[in-house]
């Protein structure tokens, strides 16, 4: 067995194990930490596929941004040491069965399908990503780039408005 395959299976175990713990553990802070390691595993998978830029973006935005934001909101809304309530037995059973059967269905479809021309492409240079992102000719990505910029601005203003309203009501 090649080393790269072993690394892939280790990353696989890390992602799935931490993901499963993140949705089943009863302590919310631990769930956030498991989520963090799951995101790190996904970033490792991008490194494994030699897409270093995406891996860096994953670490900066997910690990450094979203998980930290989630941890802050946990501190604002929870007492440390309080466990989450146990979910109802019926709900756990049916959610588990539904996800399991959907997974088996998808997996049977994927296994039966053969991918033609499956050939891993090489590394991806950041220079190409930058040039494509600001390319305004046919097939360029400058329009979605601008749309996402507007979306981020709208989200920022929205957050400020949502956070401010309670303050003015108090006064």
């Amino acid at each position: 067995m090649e080393v790269s395959n072993i690394i892939f299976y280790l990353l696989c175990a890390m992602i799935l194990g931490c993901g499963l713990m993140a949705v089943t553990t009863r302590q919310i802070f631990r769930a956030a930490i498991y989520l963090l390691f799951c995101m790190m595993g996904v970033a490792g998978l991008y490194f494994w596929m030699q897409y270093e830029f995406i891996a860096a973006v994953q670490i900066v935005v997910y690990v450094g941004g979203i998980v930290v934001l989630i941890i802050f909101s946990i501190f604002l809304t929870h007492r440390v040491g309080n466990d989450l309530a146990e979910p109802e037995y019926k709900r756990t059973l049916f959610a588990g069965l539904a996800s399991l059967f959907a997974f088996l269905l998808f997996w049977s479809v994927i296994k039966r399908n053969e991918f033609f021309g499956e050939q891993p492409s090489g590394e991806l240079s950041v220079r190409r990503i930058g040039e494509e992102m600001l390319n305004y000719k046919q097939g360029g990505f400058v329009l979605p780039f601008e749309v996402v910029s507007i979306l981020l601005l709208a989200a920022m203003i929205g957050c400020i408005v949502i956070a401010m309203r309670a303050q003015t009501e108090k006064n």
Binding site: L16, G19, L20, A22, V23, T24, L84, P87, R91, T92, F94, A95, G96, A98, S99, L100, A102, F103, F106
Partner: peptide, 10 residues
């Protein structure tokens, strides 16, 4: 589907 399971149970 781990995410789906978490979304349905939590």
């Amino acid at each position: 589907f781990i995410g789906v399971y978490g979304f349905l149970t939590r």
